[in-house]
Design a protein around this nucleic acid. Structure first.
Lengths: 186, 186, 186, 186
DNA sequence: GATGAATGAGAATTCATTCAT
DNA sequence: GATGAATGAATTCTCATTCAT
């Protein structure tokens, strides 16, 4: 929708508190009132965007995981899919990883929820790998958190520095994370 | 100082945007005007706290690293020191990891700066371990980012869930991170 | 009409300012635009209801008065007719006595107008009673105002407390008001 | 206080909904923000005024009643005191009798509360008169409501017409109301 | 140094009304 | 006649910052 696109651009560019409903309206080519016909508050609008970002990400990950075969391949594929998705959806990435922080308690809660969901996705596949004997038994919840944090940090740094394309980091980052849980280097 | 303590408590409890200068003044037992004698803006006050948090952390890490001997021991010690420091300074931890996000561009910049400094600390020692032949050559900058992200995520989760003491996670988290860069399990 | 009924319910339930045109439209099962085909403004719609309320009331009173014979009987009958009409048309009663206050100058004026008309009705019959020698000469305008105020207050209290049916109050209230103008107790 | 005076004038002149906080601020010679330092909302400000009006009225009535001796004299004195108080405090009178209607549920509740308190004052003295044998037994609650309604109506009419000073109506109105409860004409 | 009342530029939200379809 | 998305002016409330005392 026009409003969501405008909001995505605006929030990604100026952050939650830095973006006025006036900005969104202007960017959407609508009046402020029109925004409130579709979203009952600024927070709601942002939340809708956040959900969109998470849905996009989960979809991409699920797809990549489904396509890959074997424990190691699945987690590697998920990692690559995540980084590619982040790189291809810069605005949503920024919203999800950066601007959703400090936007008030409701947004904070949703952010945490979505991160937890994502972590859960990773964990399921680590558990499978453990069950299959591909990995030694371990606290996969902790490992999944480590992966999420690592990816989040690397992507956030990329958002600011843009030193080189995110996809180029995939091999090395994958090696690190796979090693962290006990996969042998390929 | 009384003001800094009051601000630390207030910001940690309600976040940057959720904390009013009135709150800080009340908590400090001072008038709002008195705050401005010492800090020229809300942002400045927050920045001072952020610096305090980073300094505390760096000091603890440096100390721990100095005490330890050998590449592996140093990085493990740093990791433990970090988690213990986070657990012992909950308010500052929250400020540094959570509330400093979304508090405006200047705060964002400083936050990034401090995280970079911390990452650098880790990196130096990874580089030494590589130089000493304890670790294979690798992108230690990336590895340091992974470590920072991992710790940040785990600590942030702990701030919300409090399922068990942070220090109990040290062994397993250390094992994960040490493995990630290529240390063999002890 | 469907719109008037919907508006009556809505305004009676939530008051003038508390009722949105959206509410009326929803309740009427029409679009907001359709409302404006029939009523040029929210105020007009409310005014139409107010007139309906007053017309209903005047009709009932006139009828009751016509049926009764003799000065005292006529005023007593009017009083009873008023209370019964109020009780039987709760929504209109609320509109007329309660919600029409504070709804803007035009509504205020009409409200006053209608109350004056009602007072006039009472006054005419008090004047007749005086002319017939059933009552001593007096300021019948003032007396009519007293009657209107008394009824208004009692009915308004009933709208909120509902302690007992309004019609049960008729004998005692009639006695009070008849005495007030100089009728001897029956 | 400057704010209360300004608010009194503004609300009396333009009603609750017709008065903007901007109007009050301008009239008080203050900024809008200053209003909110002292009153947390427009409603609160209005409520404070309403309480002031009621307190003024109750004080005057109590005083007048205390001074008078004997049942009949007391109620007559109260009535006169009320009318004089209304006439001397036109703005507060308008606030209490007119503008407090339709200003939202909280104001409506307080308005009702205050009217009930006033009615109670009248009722106590009617009860005493009954106990002393000066009046026949009767529903004094109903009678008090009648009195309140009558006075309210007469004063409201006066606010709009100003045909003649309110105090001139006292003798005739007193006669009407005293007769209504069964006092013999003096 | 301290006070706290006052400032004033916002900022979100509301809602009667309009009008292209 | 009907629709309902869009309007936009209005309005309340916010809060970091200032400054006379």
């Amino acid at each position: 929708m026009r409003i969501l696109e405008a909001a995505r651009r605006a929030f990604a560019a100026r952050g939650y508190h830095g973006t006025l409903m006036d900005d969104v309206a202007r960017e959407a080519g609508l009046s402020k009132g029109a925004l409130y016909v579709h979203f009952s508050s600024k927070e709601d609008l942002f939340l809708a965007l956040l959900d969109e970002a998470a849905a996009t990400l989960v979809e991409r990950l699920t797809e990549a995981i489904t396509r890959a075969h074997g424990g190691r391949a699945k987690v590697a594929a998920a990692l690559e899919a995540a980084l590619v998705a982040f790189e291809d959806n810069e605005d949503l990435t920024r919203l999800f990883l950066v601007e959703s922080a400090g936007a008030g308690p409701r947004v904070d809660d949703r952010r945490r929820q979505l991160r937890t969901a994502l972590t859960g996705l990773v964990r399921v596949h680590l558990d499978e790998a453990v069950a299959d004997g591909d990995l030694p038994p371990q606290d996969t919840g902790l490992a999944a958190a480590v992966w999420m944090g690592a990816v989040s940090e690397v992507v956030t740094a990329w958002l600011h520095e843009r030193s080189r394309p995110l996809r180029e980091l995939v091999p090395e980052l994958a090696a690190l994370l796979l090693r962290s849980v006990g996969f042998r280097d390929a």
